[in-house]
């Protein structure tokens, strides 16, 4: 229930932001980029609300740069 309330609040905030910002988006490219970003953010928010252990960019960074580290760096 708390999750649903939280996500409803997030959706409301995103909706208000999009509604206020929409007239200033002059081109189709700007509108589509804007929508892609906010929809992606909302989808990820919903996903990590119900699946908090979902790996994120942090795990990717650590896996990517782990081979470049030396033992003395971890002291």
């Amino acid at each position: 229930m708390m999750h649903v309330m939280f996500l409803s609040f997030v959706a409301l905030v995103i909706g208000v932001i999009v509604r206020l910002e929409w007239p200033s988006l002059q081109t189709t490219a700007m509108k589509s980029t804007y929508l892609i970003i906010v929809i992606t953010v909302f989808v990820i928010t919903v996903t990590i609300t119900f699946m908090p252990e979902l790996p994120g960019p942090l795990q990717g960074i650590k896996a990517l740069f782990k081979p470049l580290t030396a033992a003395w760096m971890s002291e």
Partner: peptide, 29 residues
């Protein structure tokens, strides 16, 4: 127009699979 969406991304990334911020000082970072 990009300021608020990027702000949302920042709030999202600050919590996505981050248990604490000690990793910021890790060698990988």
């Amino acid at each position: 127009p990009l300021v608020l969406p990027i702000s949302m991304i920042m709030v999202l990334l600050s919590y996505w699979s981050v248990s604490n911020v000690e990793f910021v000082f890790s060698p990988e970072f």
